[in-house]
Design a protein around this nucleic acid. Structure first.
Lengths: 118, 118
DNA sequence: CGAACCGTACGACGCAAATCGAACATTGGA
DNA sequence: TCCAATGTTCGATTTGCGTCGTACGGTTCG
């Protein structure tokens, strides 16, 4: 039983989405996934963004984002890949992802090229 | 010194806005102000929405919303009136208020007419 | 001036959430 | 089969935040 499920997009409420995005780690994570554009390893996102948290904490945050309907998890061999649910989120909350994209990190520290180091 | 100031809209970050809206009381409050459409007494909003919190707690929430750049406070005699910063918020976060408006309360309990009892 | 009212400021409390560490499950490779 | 790597789950800890009660400030009215 290695399947990972996420809620149907119609059942996603804005309350839960706002709570999910209200955490700095998760907000950074979502923005990184948005910049990546496709399936990405969560641990890699951590390194590229410079966020230092334990792996159990990362697992927790990913679960929160998944339960909030924002991301999807796929099993790929030994690791788990995650991706933003672009179309569905855009369908239910038009402009939300664009808003996060335009309003980048509060303080753009010297990030040369976004998430292409690996 | 009874003036109440709010941050310039250009200095408002989405992080702070998301955190402000992530609380159920504040989200209800913002939606109520949106429905009201103009200057409203915070205590009245509480009664009309059925939210029961102490006045110090209300004061705290209003301050959070004001610091987040979402609302503005005006002194009116013995009381304080608040209002949504429609145009400015719309200018900086296009579609945000509309999103809150369309995605109404998670559970629409028997609310007959919105905020016109007083 | 004094009383009543509205809101703020401050300290304290409690709970929910974030975090960590350890144990366990799963997969891939030697 | 054994071991290394990845990620989840669980329990415990800590931190942050919502909440309240009280005290204080400002305003209106008598």
């Amino acid at each position: 039983m290695t399947e990972v499920t996420e809620p149907a997009i119609e059942t996603v409420t804005i309350d839960v989405v706002l709570s999910a995005l209200a955490d700095p780690v998760r907000l950074t994570f979502v923005r990184a996934l948005d910049a990546a554009g496709d399936w990405t390893c969560g641990s890699d996102v951590l390194r590229e963004t410079g966020v230092t948290i334990g792996k159990s904490t990362l697992s927790h945050h990913i679960k929160v984002l998944r339960d909030a309907g924002l991301i999807r998890t796929r099993v790929d061999g030994i690791r788990r890949l995650v991706t933003l649910r672009y179309d569905e989120v855009e369908q239910r909350f038009p402009g939300l992802l664009a808003m996060l994209r335009e309003h980048g990190p509060a303080r753009a520290r010297g990030i040369s090229s976004p998430y292409t180091s690996g």
